[in-house]
């Protein structure tokens, strides 16, 4: 993450890889900068924000954007810019954690399915087929209904699981096809001949070789996860008040004040779109850059 600022301390090979990415994929680099700014703002929110995100101030209810409140305030007089910055914390942490969880589980399932092949592969792939015939939000909602809420350190663990599960079959499908060709490599035969366990071959010999598609999908699914978290929170089934979250800011009384306070609708949606856009763009650029096959 800190690579852009402390480039001189990196070994020259890595520095040149980073430089090449910036030169070859300027749009991707721009997206990365946007994400970095968001991540820093989220991390240091306590220092850069003048208001408390949950402080209610009835003297400033529904205030229009002004120097004191650049994005205006909501129906409880809470500063919208502040809540958007704190909302970035929610969106990025849930987005990253659920994408990481979903992609990791999907990658292991995909690699294992390819490695064992035969009947195991067939059963796993049929199961993946079935999961793929649900729209992601439908699957996530079913998991929410199944698990309910469980807070650990202020984060709803079950929400992360609900967002991660629809990601698993999609990743498993792609990683499996990448792993199929790796399975035929001589070094896998060598590892088998050496008597290594299945788990060791899967984790130590095969997984490291699907890192490129893994990274591409991890980035792209962060975008999906942020969108999904926003949708679930909007429906009242994700993050709950008074925690600031972008989707939640659009829910509830935001729609009661279309006339009086359109800023309540406009800014949180812009934040969601910008974050999703940046991660999509970074994912696309990473794909073009890491995988020459996809170059058009």
């Amino acid at each position: 993450m800190a690579a852009t600022t402390t480039g001189s301390t990196l070994p020259s090979r890595e520095r040149s890889a980073l430089l090449r990415f910036v030169v070859e994929q300027p749009l991707g680099a721009a997206a990365f900068v946007v994400i970095l700014v968001m991540a820093l703002a989220a991390a240091f929110a306590d220092w850069i924000v003048p208001y408390d995100p949950e402080a209610i101030d009835f003297s400033a209810m529904l205030a229009a954007p002004s120097p004191a409140h650049p994005f205006g305030t909501d129906a409880f007089g809470r500063d919208i810019l502040t809540r958007i910055i704190y909302g970035a914390r929610t969106a990025l942490s849930i987005g990253l954690l659920s994408s990481l969880l979903g992609c990791a589980a999907g990658a292991v399932i995909g690699v294992a399915s390819a490695y064992f092949g035969g009947r195991t592969d067939l059963v796993v792939q049929r199961f993946v087929d079935i999961l793929l015939s649900f729209p992601i939000i439908v699957l996530a909602l079913v998991v929410v209904a199944m698990l309910g809420r469980r807070l650990v350190l202020g984060i709803d663990v079950n929400l992360i699981v609900a967002i991660a599960i629809p990601i698993v079959p999609k990743v498993a499908r792609v990683i499996r096809s990448a792993a199929l060709s790796i399975r035929e490599m001589p070094y896998i035969d060598a590892a088998r001949a050496a008597g290594y366990s299945h788990a060791r071959i899967i984790f130590r010999h095969m997984c490291p070789n699907v890192v490129a598609p893994f990274l591409i999908m991890l980035t792209a699914f962060i975008a999906q996860a942020i969108l999904l978290e926003a949708s679930l929170s909007f429906l009242g089934l994700g993050v709950s008040e008074p925690k600031p979250a972008w989707g939640l800011m659009l829910a509830g009384n935001a729609s009661d004040f279309y006339r009086e306070a359109p800023w309540m609708v406009i800014f949180p949606g812009l934040a969601i779109s910008l974050a999703v856009f940046a991660f999509n763009l970074l994912g696309d650029s990473l794909r073009d850059w890491l995988d020459p096959k996809f170059r058009t």
């Binding site: 975008a223 926003a230 949708s231 729609s255 279309y258 359109p262 609708v265 779109s273």
Partner: peptide, 22 residues
């Protein structure tokens, strides 16, 4: 088209309502 992938449809719906009102 790239924006179309990033804009949540429910927010677009809210913007449409805002636009119609305005």
């Amino acid at each position: 088209t790239i924006a179309g992938l990033a804009v949540p449809s429910f927010w677009l719906g809210m913007l449409i309502i805002l636009g119609l009102l305005w």
